[in-house]
């Protein structure tokens, strides 16, 4: 479809936060996440003939972004995640500070387990379990079958669960 300048501005404004968040969860740092999300929008503009409606815009952006992130991860190789945790994130009035600390530590550990997953498993887990897309939506974004999604998300959860239980046993 033709995307006039004004409509494009609107598209960027309404999807930018979701795209940066998704990219951040995939690549682990904000600067790269911003860059990759911007590329996704640029590609939409340059390939506007590939989308016919808003629904397709929604999926096209995420599809492109996920592919860019996977490429980025493969090129970059393994690095330490830059994920940070805020203290106020767990503070509710009646929470136990020790428990909060443990939870923070656990979440830190969770992130390194996710980081260590193979790109396909990682991306499926993040879309399904962190971003909350349905199995169908995840399959559409990843251009694969629903069974493929289920298989990858199972493997990812199994890997993370094993590692976390090992870690809990040591800690």
């Amino acid at each position: 479809m033709e995307i006039p300048e004004q409509a494009f501005t609107q598209i960027v404004a309404s999807h930018q936060r979701a795209l940066v968040q998704l990219a951040y969860r995939l690549v682990g740092n904000l600067e790269d996440a911003k860059d990759l999300a911007q590329w996704a929008f640029a590609k939409l503009w340059l390939n506007h003939e590939r989308v016919d409606n808003e629904r397709q815009v929604f999926y096209y952006l995420r599809k492109i972004l996920v592919n860019l992130c996977i490429d980025h991860l493969r090129r970059r190789g393994k690095v330490e995640p830059e994920v940070e945790f805020e203290e106020n994130q767990f503070s509710s009035d009646d929470a136990n500070p020790l428990q909060q600390l443990e939870e923070q530590e656990l979440h830190h550990q969770l992130w390194s387990c996710i980081e260590a997953l193979k790109p396909k498993q990682k991306v499926t887990l993040i879309l399904r379990d962190l971003e909350g897309y349905s199995v169908e939506e995840t399959a559409t974004i990843l251009d694969c079958t629903k069974n493929n999604v289920l298989c990858n998300v199972h493997l990812a959860r199994e890997n993370v669960r094993r590692k976390i239980q090992q870690w809990l046993a040591i800690a």
């Binding site: 501005t9 960027v12 404004a13 930018q16 936060r17 940066v20 968040q21 951040y24 969860r25 904000l30 996440a33 911003k34 860059d35 999300a37 911007q38 590329w39 929008f41 640029a42 503009w45 340059l46 940070e84 945790f85 805020e86 994130q89 939870e103 656990l106 979440h107 969770l110 992130w111 887990l125 379990d129 962190l130 909350g132 959860r157 993370v160 669960r161 976390i164």
Partner: peptide
């Protein structure tokens, strides 16, 4: 339990003005 923790993993905290130059960056890439 794992799924409960996964849903609790926080989204990034974006610095103020993070999106101010966002669209300009897109245009540059285009």
């Amino acid at each position: 339990q794992l799924s409960a923790h996964l849903t609790k993993l926080a989204p990034p905290t974006l610095p103020e003005g993070f999106f101010d130059d966002f669209h300009a960056g897109v245009k540059k890439k285009i």
